[in-house]
Simulated scan of single mutants.
Amino acid sequence: MTLLVPAVAGAMIVAGLLGVVWGLWLSPVATGRPRRGRTLRRWSRRARLAVGVGLVAGVVVAIVSGWLIAVVVVPLAVAGLPALVSAPPAAARIERLEAMEEWTRSLSGILTVGAGLEQALIATLRSAPEPIRPEVSRLVARLRARWSTAEALRLFADELDDPTGDLVAGNLLLAARRRGPGVAAVLESLAESVAADVRARRQVEADRAKPRATARWVTVITVCALTVLAMSGSYVAPYKTPIGQVVLAVLLGVYVAVLVWMRRMAAGDAIPRFLGASVAKEQVR
């Protein structure tokens, strides 16, 4: 009878937390926003779900082990550790670079047969690579709507939002102004330069993946060891005291700080852009 009351109370707490998680998962999502807004809302919903699941797990760990700090630490770990130990979205950026290379080669080939710049840009829509197809589609739509070629190319560079995209758009802007021969050869050389950039970035990301994999495995081993020690044995009994909980929080905070530091070191600095509206605003400032 003495164990029945705590068991029922724990079950009710877990059931209530599960209800909270279910409510967070079913929270309505507004529609009609841009794609970036939908992506942010999707990530926000995933984060709330992760925090809810982590809260349930933290309460269970706190009841079983006596570590009250688990109610705070476990939700934060469930929501934050995957982001800290996962690879940054470099693969998507490299795919976009490869798409820019392919699109530039296609444009160079069309210009070689004698087509004008605007006609060549419109013709590339049929074979535009999927990673940059939306940007190429909007560029073609603006050209068909009789926008000036320079303005359409500047907006194209803003939508690509990449230094290599600025380089491609900058060469096209020069071609639109001078209208001379040799544009196809310049674009072919530019495609070769982009291909070399893609190879270099792939090598860099392969080198950066090694310390990330090491940090990932060390984190998994640490979490498993802490879980086993918290559930059994007297080795970690001092951490159940108030002072021990504070010390444990400090140690875990230092570990997370090291993970954040490693991720920032592996991310590197972004290459600055030199074309587009954002660059113009910075120059005005």
Score class of each variant (00 low, 15 high):
residue 5 V to Q: 14
residue 11 A to D: 01
residue 18 L to E: 05
residue 20 V to S: 03
residue 20 V to N: 01
residue 24 L to R: 14
residue 28 P to R: 09
residue 30 A to W: 03
residue 37 G to A: 15
residue 51 V to Q: 06
residue 52 G to T: 07
residue 53 V to N: 05
residue 56 V to G: 13
residue 58 G to W: 02
residue 58 G to I: 10
residue 59 V to K: 00
residue 59 V to W: 01
residue 62 A to K: 04
residue 63 I to N: 12
residue 64 V to S: 11
residue 66 G to P: 00
residue 68 L to N: 12
residue 68 L to K: 11
residue 75 P to V: 02
residue 77 A to C: 13
residue 79 A to M: 10
residue 92 A to L: 05
residue 94 I to K: 05
residue 98 E to F: 11
residue 99 A to D: 00
residue 100 M to H: 07
residue 101 E to Q: 14
residue 103 W to K: 03
residue 103 W to I: 08
residue 103 W to T: 09
residue 105 R to E: 06
residue 108 S to N: 04
residue 115 A to D: 09
residue 116 G to A: 03
residue 120 A to V: 04
residue 123 A to L: 13
residue 123 A to P: 02
residue 129 P to Y: 07
residue 131 P to I: 10
residue 134 P to Q: 02
residue 134 P to A: 06
residue 137 S to G: 07
residue 139 L to A: 00
residue 141 A to D: 11
residue 141 A to K: 10
residue 142 R to W: 06
residue 144 R to K: 13
residue 148 S to T: 14
residue 152 A to F: 04
residue 163 P to N: 05
residue 171 N to M: 15
residue 172 L to S: 04
residue 177 R to L: 05
residue 183 V to W: 06
residue 183 V to Q: 02
residue 188 E to P: 11
residue 195 A to Q: 13
residue 196 A to S: 14
residue 200 A to S: 09
residue 200 A to Y: 14
residue 201 R to K: 15
residue 203 Q to E: 14
residue 215 A to G: 12
residue 219 T to L: 06
residue 222 T to E: 02
residue 225 A to S: 08
residue 227 T to E: 00
residue 229 L to D: 06
residue 233 G to I: 07
residue 234 S to I: 10
residue 236 V to D: 02
residue 238 P to C: 04
residue 242 P to H: 05
residue 242 P to T: 12
residue 244 G to S: 08
residue 244 G to C: 06
residue 245 Q to W: 00
residue 246 V to F: 07
residue 248 L to Q: 01
residue 249 A to Y: 02
residue 249 A to G: 09
residue 252 L to C: 04
residue 256 V to P: 00
residue 257 A to G: 07
residue 260 V to E: 04
residue 261 W to V: 14
residue 263 R to M: 00
residue 267 A to K: 10
residue 270 A to K: 14
residue 270 A to D: 07
residue 280 A to M: 03
